[in-house]
Design a protein around this nucleic acid. Structure first.
Lengths: 215, 215
DNA sequence: GAATCGATGTATCGAACCGATACATCATGT
DNA sequence: ACATGATGTATCGGTTCGATACATCGATTC
């Protein structure tokens, strides 16, 4: 199926879980959900949607009122197609949510999985976070060794690029550390006391985030 | 030609500028040069190399001694092919170095261009840095608006993901700010005084980098 | 009121690209 | 002797992208 489409599948399932959407809107949400990363194109989205319909994870609805202002006449319209999750789709979503292999913490996958952490159980969350962390740690190590091997013959700009790349990954690791310890704090503290009902809040991540947004 | 292969072309030209290399080694260097980003596969590298040979930017050398320890017998060897830059290749490299459009500050391209800043003139460097900065600023803006539009209905993990993504881009912008002002400082300060000879150092970037690697 | 424009919307195609694999040599270990 | 793993060149099938075609709608403008 391809890594990329795999990530897209999860994103679609997650976004459609609450409400049906049509392709255009779906694409916007997926791409803003992942934000920083590469955007999905229609050439990927529509084939994937069709495949998911074929697998019976999705069903197509012709008329949808979402956002159509007056629901007026529209006779010969080539209407928008709203995609809706089937029961099998919900199962599939639940199944993907519990996955904890590399298919959850790879670069392509981690973002989507994290975005739906609220729907996963604490155990899965922790496993994925830790897996992701060690994945980054690997990258960091081989990075550092390759840097120290060639440090002499690099010009200053190249070095600066490497340094900046390294620093970014290091920050990522620290971010994960905060998230991990927050998760652990919220599941450990006293066995038998308020075991986080239902799905749950993220346990107050330890980022140095001072809120600059009014509201 | 495709954005990705375009970036690869510049990387190959730059790496081969100093010394000939064979494919395997070339790939390793390209991918460690770019570090954080996606790695190039052989399925991209070899076709690109062939295309560049066809365009006469590169020439193939059969026997190469680089790193072959004892240079022993090897009779029926299917030897490594060393790629070497032709004069046309050097021209092409110089041409690509002076480009300052989006093809220099896009996500795909910026890293490679930056890596070879030492070979570009100060003017080009500054234009690319500024272009890159405004590119990121755009992304930042649309990010922030899309966030404030949907802030209410997002669960906490999704918000945290967005926040982290935003912070990363913000850091990137600050990094660029440091580089930009450093460049400006090194070309402006007093017209006629030590105008940075030849290619030059990167002008002491203003990162708050405390070295924590014990070497 | 028609004409232009940009946003919204579905859909597909060719080209670009990746991931896996085949194949071969060599050093090393057992 | 045989396996294992690093080095090395090369290609193929399938995935994914970027561009485009096409269509409807609301707003703006003359």
């Amino acid at each position: 199926m391809g890594k990329r489409a795999e990530a897209l599948e999860l994103a679609v399932l997650g976004l459609l879980h609450d409400a049906p959407l049509h392709g255009y809107e779906l694409r916007k949400r997926v791409n803003s959900l992942l934000g920083w990363g590469r955007a999905f194109s229609y050439g990927t989205l529509y084939p994937t949607l069709k495949a998911m319909v074929r697998l019976n994870y999705l069903a197509e609805d012709e008329p949808v009122d979402t956002m159509v202002p007056p629901a007026s006449h529209r006779s010969g319209r080539r209407g928008r197609i709203a995609y809706r999750l089937t029961p099998e789709g919900k199962e599939r979503f639940a199944e993907l949510l519990t996955q904890t292999g590399p298919s959850a913490w790879d670069d392509e996958h981690f973002g989507v999985h994290f975005a739906f952490f609220g729907r996963a159980d604490a155990d899965t969350r922790l496993r994925i976070l830790i897996g992701r962390r060690s994945r980054l740690q690997e990258k960091l190590d081989q990075f550092r060794t390759s840097l120290s091997r060639t440090r002499e013959r690099l010009d200053a700009y190249t070095v600066e690029l490497q340094r900046h790349g390294l620093e970014s990954v290091e920050r990522e690791v620290k971010w994960l550390d905060g998230l991990i310890s927050a998760e652990q704090r919220s599941m450990d503290p006293s066995p038998g006391a308020t075991p986080t009902p239902g799905a749950g809040q993220p346990p107050a991540p330890v980022t140095g985030n001072e809120g600059e947004n009014g509201r």
